[in-house]
Design a protein around this nucleic acid. Sequence first.
DNA 1: CAGAAAATCATGTAAAAGGGGGAAGGAAGA
DNA 2: TCTTCCTTCCCCCTTTTACATGATTTTCTG
Lengths: 205, 205
Amino acid sequence: MAIKVFIVDDHYMVVEGIRSLLQSEKGIEWAGHAMNAGSCMAFLKQQQPDVILMDINLPDKSGIDLCKEVKEKYPSVYIVGLSTFNQQSFIQKMQENGASGYVLKNASQNELMEAITTVAKGKTYLSDEAASSLKGDKNAGFPVITRREKEVLKLIAEGSTNNEIANRLFISAATVDTHRKNLLAKLGAKNTASLVRIAMEHRLI
Amino acid sequence: MAIKVFIVDDHYMVVEGIRSLLQSEKGIEWAGHAMNAGSCMAFLKQQQPDVILMDINLPDKSGIDLCKEVKEKYPSVYIVGLSTFNQQSFIQKMQENGASGYVLKNASQNELMEAITTVAKGKTYLSDEAASSLKGDKNAGFPVITRREKEVLKLIAEGSTNNEIANRLFISAATVDTHRKNLLAKLGAKNTASLVRIAMEHRLI
DNA sequence: CAGAAAATCATGTAAAAGGGGGAAGGAAGA
DNA sequence: TCTTCCTTCCCCCTTTTACATGATTTTCTG
């Protein structure tokens, strides 16, 4: 029986690319595609594919969130994350939210097929590069930023001072300072400027 | 006579998508593709297409720089910028570097064809969204950041202090401070943190 | 429940950035 | 040529961040 594949990606050319790649494959049935999270959920109300190839960056919602939502309502659907970035934090979050695989958009046809068939069996597939960036490498052991730290981080990047952040979060400026220090240490930043840069490079903001 | 189209994009699926879109078009001849700037230049030594569809983000070099290089060596080749981002600064820079068009990756087949045929005639094509973001809108009037300011900006984002920057650029710390102040004013940033964020959002870094 | 982790707060000094102003030489273009 | 813009430099004062050190309370988790 053919594997029904659905795609969520707002880039027409990517959708076309995947479609043409899968067209020639016999074990694959094209279920359709959605350009955003909303129409993806709408489609799933009508029918459920076996595998969803899901872009991480969508216009209305992040693929990370959509992944969680889909898995909560339709646990039997397997999800493969699709991204141009080999970002360890993305891969990890997708997996935490129930994704079974992660493939880069520069993946070959073989790799894509292997990903689809593997996750359709209920197994996990990570592209070589994604897997290696999860293991050793420089990306490994990326520090864990807590919820509160992330809140502070965002406000810092918006240009708020410790006092302003303190007022907005209803905590003392001293506490904000502590969070700030911890952020600097965790991300290995020298000062606020590099902190913001590093945070943005790792898409924490 | 068919328009020879060449593609530079490191995302296999995008290349496939465009290829499948253009396959059915009669006036188009597929010249090939390159996954990075290096092999693009290597290809051009052998033969020159009429139009190059060029991704803005390449692994070895930015499309902006590659665009300039190509136009310097092969002025007769028309270039269409290709990006997932509708970033005014990108569009502008590509045009400054000799690009004849700019198309988003979520563009339709019609739009892509129109872009190719238009630039092949030596005219300029901007996708609707790209054009509108160049005109009015909030993006308009984006401040001009000078060469020196950009240098300082990069060092700031790397975490250098005014003194460190001064030493590296062989200028006085007072001068660095002036550049810093001008950057804050031009980008409308409240402090260093928001300066770095805004700069990164506009891909100045 | 107990230990770990996270979040909270404080005090103090040193370093850096922010904000105001002013000034002068040089390159590029109208 | 004259004007505009870029780059360079300086002073003064305030605010904010950086770094060190220590401590309490809350929350999560095995």
